[in-house]
Write a protein that binds this DNA or RNA. Structure first.
Lengths: 338, 338
DNA sequence: TAGGGAAGTAAGAGCGCTCTCACGACGCAG
DNA sequence: CTGCGTCGTGAGAGCGCTCTTACTTCCCTA
């Protein structure tokens, strides 16, 4: 049984070459779009067509050392990942779009337990993927350092709180928060509180910074409660703020989900929004259009984060130099709550 | 330069064997957990440890014909996929859990344009993945047939509307809808309408069937409006139902998102829920807890769908016989709206 | 007309692994 | 003490591809 007729059913490059009457090397050139005589190009193409030849991915990877597979690593923590806000789905969508254009495939890895961390590291060490996108990792996460050690291109979606900092694509949390506060000031609000996010997450930290910056510029006092980005925590924080300072006339909430909770707490407390108290959220998730009243918020371009992460990673893999920090703009979306 | 010391930086099985003083075959046996002398097992293990050896995935795939990669194909249509309901994120999560346990990786493919269909088909034909999970495809989708032709294991998340029907994991839409209607009847409602989903989707069709079945059993008249699973369409349909039959006292809505729209329409129309009209949704998405009033609904086990799809696919790949149809139970969740 | 270069092609090595096959060592029964 | 089965091992083929090397062919210039 010679090579061309053997095999496990699927046609190989050898069988294509045999049928086209050329060498395997020439067939390979045609398949990979390199210059050959029009005559042989044509006969190879016909052979490919007739046999239904599709190159074997593993064989190609073995010699080129490319897998055309990029990993997207997401934390599995149920609080944030696949719950209410559409952050990860949006990022996935953006990444997927960009990779499709580059003809790469996306491997999704959910990092929950330390065991899955090991698994991810092993899988990447096995040269299973060409590059890695890391989303929303905790400050102490050992993954970035481990991946850097392996020597594989990495891009994050936020600046890392840990010691090593891979290139990242972030959003302008500070500027967005400041814009929100300035909008409140511009519309005549004077006692402006904030419900901040967790202070071990970039979003939580930076949005609070933006609030403080904008208030400091206006020489007003800051009034702060802290939530954990969940709806319930927003309601709790709102009640606490009302208790602390009943004369509040505005609140900037670091996420839409918490803002919805705050809205509910305000309704229960008999405060009218926006008449008595103005509320601004952050994220512009789908829910924001449907709260009562519809939520004024700071939009962050979620799909664009995914797209740019993928784009930066592709450039890194291609050996291009990239700017290690990329910050995407946020945008004030005025609805009815402020 | 001999083989053991050569290479592109990473240790190979040859270098491990050389260091352990055994043949490559023996080293391979240790790595793959086959029986060898304790002595050589130990020395190989030490060599693996010292060199930081990780098997090359492509090389292994080339000979075993396994990739340990499973694809999950989702339609990209922005209406449903990554919008408000958490269906796909939930399925992804469930699939991911199950695959992690089996030490497989997940390749996510978003099928939007016909071009991406081609790409998916090519990628699968290249033996790039061991099996495919298809979610929510349209009736006329050529993908199932194409994949069957290629001869790769396929599992869907719903019965297919097309001619070929791969094994699938579905939920008991008919039974769930009937349960909802019976709950309304049991609580004394007499004029029960429904807002159905699109009639070219399984969920839309089957939930309407369940509604009809339960009503027919009680010999009451059916009152039907049709939406497209979006919030706005729910509001529109609700207004239409109120116009058609102002004496309605209950409505079963085929999705929570549409139910939220219906709730808003009812509030605007000055109807109290549940006093004047009872509302039951379907899905039990996160939003259902936060509507006003909180939504009574039929829960479908979304993550479980993902888990079972993955489980069935793994069994198919392992060559086991599987039941081609698997139906997961739904459950009535009573909150305040009914 | 002869020589030099360019361009296309074939041959073959090798990517890192698994798996078959043949062999040697050992234990046991006859 | 011999013969047979068992078990672990090493050698080597081969998975399907790319890429280097060396060759052939052809065209252009001197």
């Amino acid at each position: 049984m010679n090579r061309a007729s053997a095999g496990r059913g699927r046609p190989t490059l050898d069988s294509v070459a045999a049928r086209a009457g050329v060498s395997r090397a020439t067939a390979s050139r045609v398949v990979n779009g390199m210059t050959v005589t029009p005559t042989s190009a044509e006969s190879v193409r016909r052979a490919v067509e007739e046999l239904g030849y599709v190159p074997n991915h593993a064989a190609r990877t073995l010699v080129t050392q490319r897998t055309d597979l990029l990993a997207l690593v997401l934390p599995e923590a149920t609080t944030r990942v696949f719950s209410d806000d559409q952050f990860f789905p949006g990022v996935i969508h953006g990444v997927s779009q960009q990779l499709e254009a580059a003809d790469k495939q996306l491997v999704l890895m959910l990092a929950g337990s330390p065991a899955s961390h090991d698994r991810i590291e092993r899988s990447i060490a096995a040269h299973h993927v060409d590059g890695v996108m890391l989303a929303s990792l905790h400050g102490a996460d050992p993954l970035p350092a481990a991946l850097t050690r392996i020597g594989i291109p990495v891009v994050c979606n936020e600046r890392s709180l840990g010691p090593t900092s891979p290139p990242y694509v972030g959003v302008d949390n500070v500027g967005g928060a400041a814009t929100a506060v300035r909008h409140l000031l511009d519309t005549g609000r004077t006692r402006i509180a904030t419900i901040a996010g967790p202070q071990d997450m970039i979003g939580g930290i930076d949005r609070l910074t933006g609030y403080r910056d904008a208030l400091r510029d206006s020489a007003r006092r800051s009034i702060i409660a802290v939530g954990d980005f969940t709806l319930d925590s927003g309601a709790v924080a709102m009640r606490q703020l009302l208790a602390d300072d009943p004369a509040l006339d505005a609140v900037f909430v670091a996420s839409d989900l918490m803002a919805d909770g705050a809205l509910q707490a305000l309704r229960q407390a008999g405060r009218r929004v926006p008449d008595d108290i103005a509320v601004i959220g952050f994220d512009d998730i789908a829910l924001a259009q449907y709260t009562d009243p519809p939520l004024t918020t700071i939009r962050q371009p979620i799909m664009e984060i995914g797209r740019q992460m993928a784009r930066q990673l592709l450039r890194l893999i291609a050996g291009e130099e990239i700017e290690p920090i990329m910050t995407l703009p946020t945008e004030l979306v005025v609805r009815r709550s402020a």
